[in-house]
Amino acid sequence: MIRCEEITKTFCKNGSKVLSLDRFTMDIRDGEFIAVRGPSGSGKTTLLLTLGGMQRPSGGRVQFDEHDLYALTAKERASLRSRRVGFVFQMFHLVPYLDLLSNVLLASPIKPGKGERKRASELLEKFGLSNRIDHRPDELSAGERQRLAVARALLNRPKILLADEPTGNLDPDNAAVVIDHFVQFHQSGGTVVLVTHGTAADDFANRTIRLDQGRLSED
């Protein structure tokens, strides 16, 4: 599904170069549940953003299905992202001024019609948020917010979920609920790449990789 070949990413920080990914090579096959581990600053988030077409690598190549991801135009990459990739972030990144339904519908690549609204309502119900549909994100608990973020990521039935520390701000109970939703997505045939510090996903991930200073140190 995704093939990373010798990906390198360097940043300029305070005038000096920082190597975030160092000739990283890996294949992600359809239907895998991959847990990505590593210390802070090891390049986990950079990897996730690069896989999702959000951050052009300084070197190397990312093959997403039949596409050379960074040979596509920004518009083509955005279109691919909106139809095949779902992102979930540690800080939820919900739009604060929209209600729950509108937040989920934001992920729709087309003007939301009846079908999209029905799908969004079903997801909110599935995630136990159907009674809060008119609320705004700041009226939700952290666990509810993350469930809402996952619901949004799933609206377009993506092929892959890229999750960056999705349980990092949650208590164990809520973390378990969120992980459970990833497991369900995986069981329905989806691919999951989950960046995590914790061990909550260990029982479900069928592959764990470890990053150290931008390099794949364990697979």
Binding site: A74, L80, S82, F87, H93, V95, L106, A107
Partner: peptide, 14 residues
């Protein structure tokens, strides 16, 4: 800025 970032992540165009 975060909203712009997430809209980009959701595939919204410039």
């Amino acid at each position: 800025r975060q909203e712009i970032g997430v809209l980009r992540a959701l595939g919204k165009s410039g």
